[in-house]
Amino acid sequence: MMNFLVKTLANAGALAVAIWLLDKITLTGDTGEAAVALIIVALIFGLVNVVVKPVVKILTFPLFILTLGLITLVVNALMLLLTSWVAEKLDVGFHVDGFWTAVFGGLIISVVSWALNVVLPDDD
C-alpha cells in the first residue's frame, strides 16, 4: 500500500512539473480542483503504465532492439496521450496538445518520477 502511495505521489509530482514546464500540457480548475484532478490524473497515468505499457512494450520489442531503446520516448508519449484521452472522457481537466508535447512531457515525467522515487521512502 505504501509503495502504491509513493508511486502515485511521484507520478503527481512529475506530472505537475511537466504541466508547469510545457504550455501545451494543461490542468484546469482552481487550486483545490486542480490538486484533486492532478491526483486523479496520476492514478490514471499509473494505471495506464501498469496495464497498457507492458503490452505495448512486448508488441514493439523488435523496435526497442532496432532503435537501441529510443522507441521508449514514443511509447512514453503514447501513454501520456492515452492518459490525456482517458482524463477527457472522465471529465478531468487534463489535456496534452500534440505528439511532440507528449514526447517532451513523457521525457520530463520519466526523469522527475525517477528522481522522486529515489528520494521518497519506499516500503520495499
Rank of each mutant, 00 (worst) to 15 (best):
V17D: 02
W20Y: 13
L22D: 11
D23R: 13
I25M: 10
T26E: 11
L27R: 06
T28R: 07
T28C: 03
D30M: 07
G32W: 12
G32F: 11
A34H: 00
A34K: 08
L38P: 00
I40G: 03
V41G: 07
V41R: 05
F45L: 09
G46Y: 09
G46W: 09
L47M: 13
V48D: 11
V48I: 14
N49Q: 05
V50R: 07
V51G: 00
V51S: 01
V51W: 01
I58S: 03
I58H: 01
I58C: 00
L59K: 09
L59A: 15
T60W: 07
T60Q: 08
P62R: 06
L66C: 08
L66Y: 12
L68R: 08
L70D: 10
I71L: 05
T72F: 12
L73G: 03
L73Q: 00
L73E: 02
V74P: 12
A77C: 04
M79K: 04
M79W: 01
L80R: 02
L81E: 08
W85M: 13
W85D: 12
A87C: 06
E88G: 15
L90N: 06
V92W: 01
V92A: 02
V92I: 14
H95K: 11
H95G: 00
V96R: 02
V96H: 04
D97V: 02
G98P: 08
V103R: 06
F104N: 10
G106A: 14
I109K: 09
S110R: 09
V111G: 08
V118N: 03
V119P: 13
D123E: 15
D124K: 14
